[in-house]
Amino acid sequence: MTSSSDLPILRFGVVADPQYAAREPHVGMDRHYAGSLAKLSEAIDVFNGEDLSFVITLGDIIDRDFESFDDILPIYDSLKHENFFLLGNHDFSVADDRLADVASRVGLVSPYYSFVRQDWRFIILDGNEVSTFAPAPGHPRRDTAARRLDELRAAGAINAQDWNAMPSEEQFAWLSNQLADADAAGERIIVMNHYPVYPPNEHDSWDRERMITLLTAHRHVAAYFSGHNHAGNFGTIRGCHFLNFQGMVDTETENAFAIVEIWNDRMQVRGFGREDSRTLSLRR
């Protein structure tokens, strides 16, 4: 007989960067866009055989074209668990007149939000808010993004890339309030965003420094999960784990997804395919 102490507090599934499109592979980057339908179906078959609280996709559901959502979203209909999305840069590789429809197309009332499961708060960010691609042409946030990109380029920052972005000041303030509320409620926290912030990489969010400072100041923040850098990455600062999951779209035959198990003293990442398995200790 298995006691409750022998079971994790909760489990959830993670997918990063399916980046589906009905297009030929990019051989140089080893990205096989059309193959993500079969890979996602395989992952969902695994998820459906597990006792999970939810599954989340960490952005870049599609590679391009609004119509691509019509092919990949029905795959998620077979998922037996609660399903969450956040958005990545490629999700906005659509015609200008469809930019405002992207969030609602994947069922998001707001592109950033939070939810609580078993005294764990999951904070889901919209890392595209200040960018040169997600706001409608002429929107002030495009101008803000252009200025920020110029500043980073002038400073020689490795993440001064136009495929990166950052949350707005309003969203960053919301995040800070969410962290304070979770601290007051005694909840542990996992923050999720498409864009990584650590270890330093060319794919990092444009506001990586302030994000790291904020997250590591809160002892209840256990981890920051991201996609975007398809090679994956991992680092820890003062007990906060920064885990960048590998991209599902990469390689012709190997998949990449994970199941995360949360225990009182640790998180265990069970990787499938190219995704690494690892144990992450939790600070008290």
Rank of each mutant, 00 (worst) to 15 (best):
M1F: 12
I9Q: 02
V14Y: 14
V14G: 12
Y20R: 06
Y20Q: 15
A21Y: 03
H26T: 15
V27D: 07
V27R: 12
M29A: 09
G35I: 03
S41H: 08
S41A: 12
A43V: 08
I44M: 04
N48H: 13
E50K: 12
V55C: 15
I56S: 12
L58P: 14
G59Y: 13
G59F: 10
D65E: 01
D65R: 01
D70K: 07
D70Q: 14
D70I: 00
D70E: 10
P74A: 13
Y76D: 06
D77A: 10
N83F: 06
L87S: 08
N89H: 10
H90Q: 08
D91S: 04
F92A: 03
F92W: 15
V94G: 02
A95H: 01
A100N: 11
V102N: 00
V102C: 02
A103H: 01
R105A: 04
R105N: 04
R105C: 04
G107I: 02
L108V: 05
P111C: 07
P111T: 09
S114T: 09
F115S: 01
V116Q: 03
R117Q: 13
D119E: 10
W120D: 06
W120E: 11
R121Q: 13
I123P: 05
I124S: 07
D126F: 01
D126G: 05
A134M: 04
A134C: 06
A136Q: 09
P137A: 09
H139V: 00
P140Q: 00
D143Q: 05
R147A: 13
R147W: 08
L149P: 03
D150P: 03
E151P: 08
I158T: 02
N159C: 03
M166G: 01
E169T: 05
Q171N: 09
F172L: 12
A173R: 01
A173Y: 00
L175M: 03
S176K: 06
S176H: 10
N177R: 11
Q178P: 00
A180C: 06
D181P: 14
D183A: 13
A184Q: 08
E187P: 15
V191H: 02
N193V: 00
H194C: 13
Y195Q: 07
P196G: 11
Y198D: 08
P200R: 10
N201C: 01
E202R: 07
R208C: 09
E209K: 14
E209Y: 01
E209W: 01
R210Y: 05
L215A: 14
V221N: 04
A222L: 11
Y224K: 14
Y224I: 14
F225Q: 14
F225D: 13
N233D: 15
G235Q: 11
I237N: 13
R238W: 07
H241Y: 14
F242G: 06
M248I: 06
M248S: 08
V249T: 15
D250E: 14
D250M: 09
T251L: 13
E261C: 12
E261A: 11
I262D: 00
N264Q: 09
Q268K: 09
Q268G: 08
V269R: 15
R270K: 11
G271Y: 13
G271Q: 14
G273T: 07
D276G: 12
R278L: 10
T279A: 07
L280D: 11
L282N: 01
R284I: 05
